[in-house]
């Protein structure tokens, strides 16, 4: 296990595998940060139920763009230009959950509740990681706190719809069914060689399976509290 801490100035002295993995994880993280606004701004900002909701959508998108900026700066500093993900069509995104578009307020709510929660898990992986500039971004900035704000907003809206019962509850259950498996898939394959290498180099803390299981248990408890049904964790899954 790699136990050193690496500053920007020492990056080029690192093993090529370390350099490749860091470049890759920053590109994927940048893509995920900008992937959210690309999913929902077009349809949801103009149609959110109230002006306050519209402004919250705009603020959420601004925060995600800021997270992209911070990760893009880290990548740029090690010579990786990730600006190509800014004009990628959604279908090209690294992570499948970001390849469509969000057209309903229910989907927007559940996206915050479940997918931004995966975003928090991804960011938590970097706490105390071996690359200190990345460790500082996740620890010293508002990134995780803002992500938690998105999760809370989505969770509260999801619970609100569930509590209404009837058609509202059915619509939100449908959105939960859709995003729940996307969230589970976002952790990647259980038997991932690359995931082990990230851990070996101190760039991530948990295995894909460990993180997914923690996420699953956390979500299941919340979904049950809302009086919704826990979706089948295998239906529609791409990665196991």
């Amino acid at each position: 296990m790699f136990n050193e801490k690496v500053e920007l100035n020492d990056f080029e002295k690192q093993d090529p595998e370390y350099q490749d993995l860091l470049r890759r994880v920053l590109a994927i993280q940048a893509d995920c940060e900008i992937g959210g606004p690309n999913l929902y701004v077009k349809n949801i900002l103009p149609t959110a139920p109230s002006k306050v909701d519209q402004l919250i959508v705009a603020r959420t998108a601004a925060e995600e763009v800021d997270h992209f900026r911070k990760i893009a700066k880290l990548a740029g500093d090690i010579g990786v230009d990730v600006s190509y993900v800014l004009n990628w069509p959604n279908e090209k995104r690294y992570v499948e959950a970001f390849r469509g578009s969000i057209k309903t307020w229910e989907d927007y709510a559940v996206f915050g509740f479940l997918i931004d929660r995966v975003g928090r898990y991804q960011l938590e992986e970097f706490i105390d990681c071996s690359y200190l500039p990345l460790d500082r971004v996740v620890k010293d900035s508002q990134v995780i706190r803002e992500e938690e704000g998105h999760i809370d907003f989505g969770m509260n809206k999801t619970a609100e719809y569930a509590a209404k019962g009837g058609e509202a509850k059915e619509r939100i259950q449908k959105a939960v069914d859709y995003w729940y498996v996307k969230g589970l898939d976002m952790f990647g394959r259980t038997e991932s060689y690359r995931s082990e290498r990230y851990r070996q180099w101190g760039l991530k803390r948990r295995t894909n399976a460990e993180a997914r299981e923690q996420y699953r248990q956390e979500c299941n408890a919340l979904i049950e509290q809302m009086g919704l049904e826990i979706p089948d964790p295998t239906k529609g899954r791409l990665y196991f």
Binding site: E12, A58, A61, R69, G76, D77, D81
Partner: peptide, 24 residues
């Protein structure tokens, strides 16, 4: 380490964009 071209310029541009959004 040589940064990627436009790293600073993109960072600065996005800072302005984000400030404008938060301001509004």
């Amino acid at each position: 380490m040589q940064p990627a071209p436009n790293t600073e310029a993109l960072d600065e541009h996005l800072r302005v964009v984000i400030q404008a959004l938060h301001g509004a």
